[in-house]
Amino acid sequence: MSWDLFLLLLQASVTTIVVSVVSIVLGFLLATVVCAGTMSSNTLARGAGRLFVSFFRGTPLLVQLLLIYHLLPQIGLDVPSEVAAVAGMALCTAAYQAEILRGGFGAVPKGLMEAADMCGLGAFATFRRIRLPIAVRLTLPSLVSEIIMILKASSLVSVVGVIELTRMTQDLAASTFLPLPLYASAGVIYLAINAVIAGVGTVLERRVARGHA
């Protein structure tokens, strides 16, 4: 396998990274809303949040992507396949991240909030200064795993026509008859990206570890 082929794979992995990062960020924003819903005292909001989480965690991402890809044009949204792909991945990861956040908020010891209450911090300050920072620290390892999951899951957007790493490998394998080295190279690139994410995660976790209970 030539160096040129490998360069093409590297180029395509930029798309993989961009699609993943955009999905993760959009998914996180959506997840805060969904999480607020599932933790809400309002029955309707809680039900909607739970239904969202249940559906997007209970069905294959591939099916979600295909559904959204075909649904968007039918409801008059003619968007490029990249947008459909990002929409599908963001919705899916939002469901997972919402559950991670809910777990994190739930794991903040009640006593820490009571202490804040006794110190007169008030509801908003208690959330901003105590509950949120501790929940973020508690969820950091799970969020890093979720980022790695999404990076791997981004390979599925190849089926809706986004030319990312997996799709590029597939196309090159078909034209060069070199599937073994090509797919192995793609695997190595995925491993390398994941190693970087995991490494950054470890550094972040170590940085906040000092402030752990």
Partner: peptide, 21 residues
């Protein structure tokens, strides 16, 4: 259970409410 805020130093724990509240 003491309930000190784990992400703040001893000083930070004592200062927090003085500044925020």
């Amino acid at each position: 259970q003491f309930n000190l805020w784990p992400h703040m130093t001893a000083l930070g724990n004592v200062m927090e409410a003085l500044v925020t509240a």
